[in-house]
């Protein structure tokens, strides 16, 4: 098997429609460097190219080249399109393809696995580069278990969770963009994007990547202002239970849980959250869990490091005031 010097690693560069990088890209590039020579892959359509700021970031994190795969008139966001475009870049020296472990990119990983025959794993939390194989830690059962696996094929496709490594810049040189026009299959082309509305990014840290997440549930009765304030004081992101997103109290993309975002921040604070099994599935790998709930029997207390039986409308404002005071 190849040593890092001769191994190529493809990293899918997630970005917003306006070309802004998603934060986890920096981690994926950093991780890729431990495996081999990193190439960024930017899937786009209709001649759009990565903005200079993105090329700087990608180059700065160790990928001298970004392959811009232009799908022409076919929508570049569809996961089968992304997978086929990526598969076209896989060569004999490619040892790994790294993508973030979002719902969409898990589909990309799955399809790449079918197209290339690669050993494929998602929800990866750590990668160890052995002399002849990659050893990967991944979460199962909603992060209540971890399993250590090895990839049996020469190529590995990995969907990686946030915080698997700490992002580290290495260079001051921007990446060079090399454009390739790609053709996709008739089946991939058969899906038409009738409408697409991208939500504007918030000023707060990205939920999946934030180190502090403040979460509100039904107990907020729809008023998230206290939680917003607490999140601001802590420099954190705001999340919610499905009840809160279903009620329309906060955007759907704030939903944490089995069918929403999975978070594993250093600090999770849940207020007015019961801790239903579906919600726990998306947060129980968090470092420290704090829960504020009026019901001493709420299941969230079973996994809380600090449980506070109390009314969030009393506890949260006092905590905010004290945090401000302690900080001076």
């Amino acid at each position: 098997m190849t040593t890092p010097a001769e191994a190529d690693v493809l990293v899918l560069i997630d970005h917003a429609d306006d070309g802004t990088l998603r934060p986890q890209v920096r981690e994926l590039l950093t991780l890729g460097r431990a495996i081999g020579t990193v190439h960024g892959v930017w899937v786009t359509g209709a001649g759009a190219t990565p903005p200079p700021a993105a090329l700087e970031e990608v180059g700065g994190h160790g990928a001298p080249v970004v392959h811009v795969l232009d799908t022409g008139s076919v929508h570049p966001r569809l996961t089968p399109v992304v997978a086929e475009a990526l598969a076209g870049l896989v060569g004999p020296a490619t040892r790994a393809v790294l993508v973030s472990s979002s719902f969409e990119n898990k589909e990309v990983a799955a399809r790449l696995g079918v197209l290339t025959g690669a050993g494929t794993m998602v929800d990866v939390t750590a990668v160890e580069v052995g002399p002849d194989r990659l050893v990967v830690d991944k979460q199962v059962f909603a992060a209540t278990w971890t399993s250590r696996c090895t990839v049996r094929t020469p190529l590995a496709v990995l969907g990686v969770k946030p915080h698997a490594v700490e992002a580290e810049a290495t260079s001051a040189d921007p990446a060079v963009a090399v454009t390739h026009e790609v053709e996709v299959s008739a089946t991939a082309r058969a899906v038409e994007v009738v409408e697409r509305t991208e939500r504007a990014p918030s000023d707060r840290p990205d939920l999946g990547a934030a180190q502090v997440v403040v979460v509100g549930g039904r107990g907020t009765e729809g008023d998230f202002s206290l939680l917003d304030e607490l999140a601001d004081v802590l420099g954190g992101a705001v999340g919610a239970t499905r009840v809160a997103t279903d009620e329309g109290w906060i955007d759907k993309d704030a939903q944490i849980g089995q069918t929403g975002v999975t978070v594993a921040p250093r600090l999770y604070i849940g207020a007015g959250v019961s801790g239903a099994v579906h919600h726990r599935g998306g947060m129980q790998a968090s470092g420290t869990i704090v829960a504020i709930n009026t019901d001493a029997d709420a299941p969230i207390f079973e996994i809380a490091d600090l449980g506070i039986v109390g009314d969030l409308r009393e506890v949260v404002p006092r905590a905010i005031a004290e945090l401000r005071r302690l900080r001076g």
């Binding site: 802590l234 600090l267 704090v290 504020i292 001493a296 207390f301 809380a304 490091d305 600090l306 449980g307 506070i308 039986v309 109390g310 009314d311 009393e314 506890v315 949260v316 404002p317 006092r318 905590a319 905010i320 005031a321 004290e322 945090l323 302690l326």
Partner: peptide, 18 residues
Amino acid sequence: RVLITDEGDAGVRLAEYL
């Protein structure tokens, strides 16, 4: 793991814990 009941001081104790 710690479980406390708010007696008016839990907000302060939360801040101290953090």
